[in-house]
Structure formats: C-alpha cells, structure tokens
Design a protein around this nucleic acid. Structure first.
Length: 941
RNA sequence: AGGCGCGUAGCUCAGUUGGUUAGAGCGCUACCUUGACACGGUAGAGGUCGAUGGUUCGAAUCCAUUCGCGCCUACCA
C-alpha cells in the first residue's frame, strides 16, 4: 500500500492552512521552544516587525516585506542562530481615527457629538473587531514570528514606555510647548508634522494686486496665489537693497478690502527677481511670513477657524470657506480695480497624507520635540558605520535629511493615542507633568496612573490633563526597545537588543527609521556604549510593489492586489518566490500574472519531483518489506556532523557533480542573502532545482535507478533522496509550505524542516573536483546528438544509432563510462565510440572542441545542413578573428591579466580546431550538394 | 531648485570590482503525452545594451554631454 501517494498536481490550498496553524500552535518560532530541539550555536538574530496598522489589512507591500524578513529569519534559524522575529501592531492614530469617523458619518454622527469618552470606546471596539485581521493573514502566509511576544503600541507596557520617554525628554527640555506655525488639516482637525504633508504640483493662478500707498497716488503691486490670505496681511515686504522700493520702506499701504493700514518693511527673505519684488506678509497663514512676522514683531492674525472657514477677523467674508472666500476676494478686487493681472502658475500644494485635504498652515499652540541634539548622535552612528544602511544610497538621503532637520510637532488633536502626560492648572495656567510613567488600566483602557496632586507653580488642585495625544510615530520610535521591555532592563532586552536588522520601505525612512535611531541612542542607558544603544545594526530598505503596468498600487487607482487573493490562486510559496526573485535591490517590483504562473509551475515541479521519489520509496518499501529508515540505513540525510558535512556513498559521476552544484548553490545563496540580494538567491535555487536537479540529475539517475528488477537500486536511490532532501532545506526559507509538507514525509529527526540545519557550503572531496568538467563534457555530447536529431527532423520517438569520437583517450573513456546514460538521454539505439575524428560520410556531424558527434542518418535536406554549417563557420570565423586580433595586440598581451590572456589563447586553439573541422565538413557537403545536383533543395528555402 | 533612480530580447527584468560569444523568466517557432510533472520534455529563433563623445589593450559596465521617464527633499510669494 502506497504510503506517500500524493496528488499529481500541486494543490497549495490543501496543505498551507494546515501548516500555518500547526506552526503557530507548536510555537516553533519562539526561540526558547526552538532551542529545546536544537540548541542555537550562533548569536541572536532579532528583528522587530514594522508594526502594521492594527485595524488594517495586509497589502502587497506588507507581503513583500514579510517575505523578505521571513526568508532571512528562516535562513538564520536553520543556520543555528537564536532567532527572534517580534511581531506586533501599531495603533496608527490618524489612520484609525479617520476610519472610525467614517463609520460614524454613516450614522450621521461626528466625534464631537458623541464625546471623547464614547468615541474612544468605539475605537477600542473597532480594534477588537478588526484588530486580528493582519495577524491572521500573517499566520496564513507563514510568517515565522514569535506570536507569544506580540505587542501593541497602546497596550499598558508600551504606553508606559511612551510616558517614560516623554517625561525624560520633557524634563531635559527637549520637549516644549509653544505657539508656532504648523500644518493643520481642516478635516482631521489636528496638527500634522512636516512629514505628514504630501506635496503635489498643481496648476493655479498667480494674481497681482495693487496695494495703494497711503497718502500718495502710488501703489505697490504684490503677487500671490492665495488671495484669501490677504485678509490677514499685516505688512508688505521688499528686499532691503532693492532700489526700486527703498523709498517706500517705512511707509504704509492700505490693505485692500480690509481698509487696514499696514507697513512696508524690508527683509532679506524677499526675492527681488520673483514677481514684482514685493511680498504680502501674512504671518498667521504662511510659514515664511510667520518667520518674517516674528522678526519684525508683526501681529499674527488668523482669518480662518479650525475647519478653514473664514472667521470674524475676515470681516465681510466671515462664514465662507477658504475656496469660496478666494472667489469673492477675487471678484471684489476686480470690481474695485485693484487686480492688476492674473497669470497661470504651477506650484506645489500641501495635502494631508491621510485624507488628502489641502493643508492649512496655521499658528497654533502645540508640543514640539527639539531635534538637533537628538539628531547629532544619530548622524554620527551612521557615519561611523555602527548602523549600516542598505542599499548604500539611502544613507545619503538619511544624512541629508538629518542634517537639515526641524523640530518635530508631536501633539495631535486626536482622541486615539497616548495622551500627553501633562496637567494644566485651572488657576495659574502652569504645566505640571505626571509624577512618573506608571500606567493603570481603567475600563480596559490604559492611562497615566500618576497625575500630579497639585500645580507645580501655585499648588492649586484644579488640574486637567492636556487634551492632545502624541503623534503615532512617537511611540513607533520606541518600538525596537519598548517591545523588549524597556524601560525595564529585561532579559529580552539583554538578549535581543540592539536588534540585528530593520527592514522597511523608503517611505518611512524619516518617519520611523531616523526617529528610532535618535530615540534609541537617547533613551537607552547612557552608560551603555553607543553600539549597544542603537536600535539595529543594519537597516535594509526594500523596494515598492507596483502593478503590472508599474503603477503604484493605491486604493484610489483601484489597482490594489490583495495578497490573500493571489495566494489563493497561486499558493503562498509561489507568491513568495515571485516576490523574492523579482526583488533586485533598488528596483521596484511590478507584479505580473505571468511571473506568478511560472513560479507556481516551479512549485509544481518540486511537487512532482517529490512524487517521483516518493513513488520509488514506496516501491522500495513494498518490495523489501523494510522501512524507509532501514532502506536508507542511517546514511540519510546529508547533515553536518562534527562540523563536517557528509557526502553520498558510492557516488557516481552525476552524484559527484550534483554535490558540487549543491555546494555552489549553498554558497551563492548564503552570499546573496547576506547582501540582501534575494533575486540572486532565488535564481540560483530555481536554476539548480529545475535544470540541474530535475532535468539532468533525475534523468541521469534513472537508468541506474531502474537497473534492478522490482525495486530501485539502493545506492542510486539513497543518493537521489539525500540530494532531494538537501534541496528542500535549501528551498525552505523561500517556500516554507511545500518544503515542510514534502519533508515531513521523509524520515526526519526535527519537528519541522524549519529547525533542520541549512545546507552548509563547503568543499567537495578533492578527488571529485573533475566531476563538474566531465559532466559538462558529457552534457555537451548529449546536447550535440539531440541537436542533430532535431535539425534533421528525426522523429522524437525514433531511436537511432549515434557515434562519439575524441582524440583524447580520457574523453573516450569518459564517454564509455557514461554510455548507458548517453544512449538514454539522446534517445539512441546504440552508441559507438572511436578514438579519432569522424568522417562526414554516412551521417550528420557536429564538431565540438574536444569531440565529434555523429548520427549516421542521411539528411533528407542536405541544403539545410549546409546552411547551418555556413552560419556556424561564419560565427567561428568571427570569434577566431576577434581572438587573433586581440592576441596580436602587444598592448593587450602586456597589460591584460595573465589569466585573461591564457584563457583567450586556449579558446583560440579551440576555435581554430573547430573552424578547420567545420570548414572541411562544409566543403565535403557542398561538394556533395553540387554533385547531387538537386536544384530545388537550395532554392525552396 | 537640489538629490536619487531608471532606460539592455516582443514583455518583465538580471548583469558584483571594466575581461569569453550580454543572461533569466514569460511569450514565440518546431517536434514529442518517453516509467514525477503538458503547471511537462527536447531543440531553436530573437538584442548595434536610450543617443553622442571620451578614457582604456578592452566599455552594457568608468567619465562628460544629451534625450525620455519615475521618485524624494525644498519656505520662493
């Protein structure tokens, strides 16, 4: 009875969910559990996940990221590192709040109507409802993270980390509160940091307006794109050295529509070349004007409310929104004859990253984090190479930004997040921080547990906590250490910090990576050396996933590919492999169905190779009455023992060759992965498994395998199985499901292939070293014979006799030793070997450098063969010529490295031999073609 | 405005520090259901490496200029 009867076609859907579930249940990826089976003999290898939005769902970007992370984690785990991939979720302040507000809107409600308490309750409810989505998706996709250590940014422990960080920075005066110009989203009703503003080029108009100079007939012409802000102007400015306007400095102009007199002042900020050289100054609504205003002590008039509607300061325009106001202002200026001209103008506008509403610069009382002192050590750490950024070019981007960093607005007028642990005094207005960072849970919600008892200034007890919450990225910045227990010095922090690696997309380089580095260096114990305080040793920046037309995937474009959906169709392993093999550093990935199909085919190939092997294993068990273990007699698998890797017993040429290939591939995969070149590693594996292992090795082994009646030849089979098992281990980091499924059906000593050792690159035994060359020569001979058959249109089903000849005795011997294989793989009836060259008579010839191949079959179209030979002769002639020219060049001989020259010399000899042979063969055939005088032969084609 | 990246076979992309005849997958052509696999096998066709100039014995690779895309950063109204 067959033990391992597997379906003919690979069906990922039937196996993946089962393994996904088991892996989590058995906690295989919890380092402590893994260590029980196989004690790690290498250092810790840790990574904190870029935490996805707790209420979000997985997109292709996640899948790419997780695939790359998972490949590295599985690889290192198999190599014997103590691996921790720490998973978790981010509360994602604005993003989540926007979603919940949308839900409210469906019921005709907004958050103000239901109040903070109720709103927060609903967000937690929403989180409970949809918070598990990504986790389940990750599990389904086989992410090998340690779910026992899962974290959430708003859970009490991490809340405490945030309070601790805030209070420390506050006490050091690195966090301060003040009225400054910030970016305001009138829809989200919150401040945004500079990074949360997206810039977009848009067509607009540049309006030139006349500001009458008080007491004269003159006026100053001022250009602006934002007419409505005119209502808040408190000055106009010119450049101090601008001769045209010098005389007006100090005079007043009459602000149109508002009839307010405002000064003309001089400031270097003004660009004389632009527009008229006169700028209107609106300190309340423009970041530059704000600076100018502060320099000159101007009033900061706000003409809009928080929803960007004109307020009482906008006079007659009160109540209009900013766009209506612009139209009305335009109309009024026009009717008063103050509009000089309107020109089309293209400029960048700022949009709220979350809701795409036009951002309104606004003066507002907010909390800020001082960045310069934090940035300096963070710059140094990267400069000194303590933190490596890969690919390298991102390092420059990082440094550029860090060197020009501005203070970070960290307060948000949201209700979902970590509330600022500062209390305001109802009597004197002074600020008092929480006494410590303790957190308590009230109604299932964490909050600061140590409010101050009284005002630090006046001792009043009338204290209320600041209403704002912190920017989500503030808590994210602590993630690599808050998740490991900081501020406590936990065993986990000791064991896994600094994390080995951080992997994320370039879009959060500033948002997150830079801030993690700054906070890590600042907040970890200052008596630790710098290299222990950094959050990670290496930062790898991955590419973006685009659609097949190279468009960015986005909900608005409607081209979002759902990872779960394509996974259903192609299998997780195939999708993972596609992402890995397309992930060349520095290039975005454009995902196409064709690629997915071909790697599903690859999975199927693996499946069917297994099927072939399993069938024979079953057969062997049946015939012998022994178990697989007995049949393999302790010589399986090829795992290292005492640090030395083991080899197949009684290896024949193909065994020796495939082992050298395994060595090459293991080394290549190792080097590629160490350098984050996932595509290179995948290519190696693909080519190895499909072409080397299946196309050549399995086919090669078949004659030997079937040489005994009733059951497969034991040695041949055991070696085949050993190589197959090792291939599964090579493939496992890339294709975890299919490899686990197949591997489990072989004898094994670990609970999962994930805990088995990764094939060790090493050196094949010295006496095997010729195998690769010999194999290549035999392969070349087989291809030559097949090629003749194909060219001569010999029916593929028909076996014909073949001949090989070589002047080197060793080559003849080699062919003789592989006679059976050659006969089989070239579909021959017999193979004749001779120690000489072959004449053209009675067959079709191929000349290779070290042998001749012939099929004694008269071509039914001699002209075709002649043409082919002519082409070959031409090509050889070109190569020969090029080699000769180079070698004749004394400069080349003198300057080129010796091995290059020698290589070329050797090739020249080969070209020469072949050229001679082909020429003489050609002239014989041409002659025959002439004497046969079959005029139609040459002309019909 | 500055910075980064891309332009190689019909399509999607590789090509480490310059060194054989520039590779892969898909697609295409022809033949083949041969004892795992038609999601397969065998053999093929297909590229003046965006353009120009330079360095070099030798350039897809290095340098300069240029054209066409894409992205990031920036306070020019």
């Amino acid at each position: 009875m067959a033990q391992r009867d597997i379906p003919k076609a690979y069906e990922p859907g039937a196996i993946e969910p089962r393994w996904a579930q088991q892996w989590v249940e058995r906690k295989l990826y919890t380092p402590e559990v893994a260590a029980q089976q196989r004690a790690p003999d290498k250092p810790s290898f840790s990574l904190a996940i870029p935490p996805p939005n707790v209420t979000g769902s997985l997109h292709m970007g996640h899948m790419l990221e997780h695939t790359q992370i998972d490949i590295l984690m599985r690889w290192r785990r198999m190599q014997g590192h103590r691996v921790l991939w720490l998973p978790g979720m981010d509360h994602a302040g604005i993003a989540t709040q926007v979603v919940v507000e949308r839900e409210l809107a469906k019921q005709g409600l907004d958050r103000q109507q239901i109040g903070r308490e109720e709103f927060e309750r609903r967000v937690w409810e929403w989180k409970a409802h949809s918070g598990g989505t990504i986790k389940n998706q990750m599990i389904r996709l086989g992410a090998s993270c340690d779910w026992t250590r899962e974290r959430f940014t708003l859970e009490p422990a991490l809340y405490r980390a945030v309070l601790e960080a805030f209070l420390r920075l506050y006490h050091e005066k690195l966090i301060y509160r003040g009225r400054y110009m910030i970016n305001w989203c009138p829809r989200c009703l919150t401040a945004l940091s500079d990074l949360e503003v997206e810039h977009q080029e848009r067509d607009a108009k540049l309006y030139t307006i006349r500001y009458p100079i008080v007491g004269t007939e003159h006026s100053l012409s001022v250009a602006t794109t934002r007419l409505e802000t005119l209502l808040g102007d408190t000055a106009v400015a010119v450049h101090p050295e601008d001769e045209r306007y010098r005389k007006f400095v100090g005079q007043k102009v009459l602000l149109p529509l508002m009839k307010r007199e405002i000064p003309v002042l001089a400031d270097e900020y003004v660009d004389r070349e632009f527009g008229t050289g006169v700028v209107k100054i609106t300190p309340g609504h423009d970041p530059n004007d704000f600076e100018v205003g502060r320099r000159h002590g101007l009033a900061e008039i706000e003409v809009m409310d928080d929803a960007a509607r004109m307020n009482q300061n906008a006079g007659p325009y009160q109540g209009l929104d900013r766009f209506q106001a612009r139209k009305r202002v335009l109309a009024d200026l026009e009717s008063q004859g103050l509009l000089e001209k309107v020109e089309p103008y293209r400029h960048a506008v700022g949009l709220c990253q979350r809701c795409k509403t036009l951002v309104e610069p606004r003066v507002s009382l907010q909390w800020f984090c001082k960045m310069k002192p934090l940035a300096e050590p963070a710059i140094q750490a990267v400069r000194d190479g303590l933190i490596k950024i890969v690919p390298e070019n991102w390092e420059k981007v990082y440094l550029d930004w860090m060197e020009r960093i501005h203070d970070w607005c960290i307060s948000r007028q949201l209700w979902w997040g970590h509330r600022i642990p500062i209390w305001h005094c109802g009597d004197c207005g002074a600020l008092t921080p929480a006494r410590d960072s303790q957190v308590e849970v009230v109604n299932d919600r964490p909050q600061a547990a140590s409010p101050p008892a009284e005002c630090s200034q006046c001792g009043s007890g009338k204290l209320t906590q600041d209403a704002d919450v912190l920017d989500t990225w503030f808590s994210s910045a602590l993630w690599p250490f808050s998740t490991l227990g900081w501020p406590d010095q936990t065993p986990d922090l000791e064991a896994f910090y600094p994390t080995t690696l951080m992997i994320n997309g370039f879009d959060i380089l500033f948002f997150w990576d830079a801030r993690m580095i700054m906070m890590g260096l600042k907040l970890l114990p200052q008596d630790w050396p710098v290299e222990k305080r950094i959050p990670f040793h290496t930062l790898y920046i991955h590419a973006l996933v685009r659609d097949a037309d190279r468009q960015k995937m986005s909900k608005t474009r409607g081209n979002v590919v759902n990872p779960l959906e394509i996974t259903e169709r192609y299998g997780t392993d195939a999708v993972r492999f596609t992402l890995a093999i397309m992930a060349a550093p520095g290039t975005d990935i454009s995902l196409s169905e064709d690629r997915l199909k071909s790697y599903r085919a690859f999975a199927n190939k693996i499946w069917n190779a297994a099927r072939f092997i399993f069938m024979n294993l079953d057969k062997a068990e049946e015939a012998s009455g022994e178990s697989a273990e007995q049949i393999l007699s302790g010589k399986f698998p090829l795992e290292p023992s005492n640090g030395e890797r083991s080899w197949p017993t009684e290896p024949d040429l193909a065994d020796r060759w495939i082992c050298t290939r395994v060595m090459e591939v293991a080394r290549a995969v190792e080097e590629a992965l160490a350098g984050f070149r996932f595509h290179e590693a995948s290519h190696q594996l693909y080519h190895f498994f499909w072409h080397d292992f299946c196309d050549w090795y399995i086919e090669w082994v078949k004659p030997r395998l079937f040489s005994e009646a009733g059951q497969p030849n034991r040695v041949a089979f055991r070696n085949l199985l050993c190589v197959f098992e090792e291939s599964l281990r090579l493939l496992h980091p890339f294709m975890p499901f299919i490899t686990e499924e197949l591997w489990q059906q072989l004898p094994h000593k670990y609970e999962s292939i994930a805990l088995a050792p990764f094939p060790q690159a090493g050196k094949v035994p010295d006496q095997w070293e010729k195998a690769a060359q010999e194999m290549a020569l035999v392969q070349e001979a087989i291809v030559a014979l097949r090629n003749i058959r194909a060219e001569m249109k010999i029916d593929a089903r028909r076996r014909v006799p073949g001949e090989l000849a070589a002047t080197e005795e060793s080559v003849v011997e080699l062919f003789r030793s592989q006679q059976e294989v050659i006969v089989r793989l070239a579909s021959l009836t017999e193979l004749k070997l001779s120690p000489d060259s072959l004449p053209a008579e009675g067959g079709v010839l191929r000349h290779a450098a070290r042998f001749d191949a012939r099929v004694p079959f008269s071509p039914d179209d001699l002209a075709v063969e002649v043409k082919r030979l002519q082409r070959e002769k031409e090509k050889l002639g070109r190569q020969l010529e090029s080699a000769r020219t180079k070698l004749a060049n004394q400069q080349f001989r003198r300057k080129a490295p010796q091995e290059v020259v020698r290589g070329l010399e050797q090739r020249q000899t080969e070209y020469d031999t072949q050229y001679q042979k082909v020429s003489s063969l050609l002239s014989t055939l041409e002659h025959r073609l002439g004497t046969d005088s079959a005029p139609s032969a040459g002309e019909s084609r």
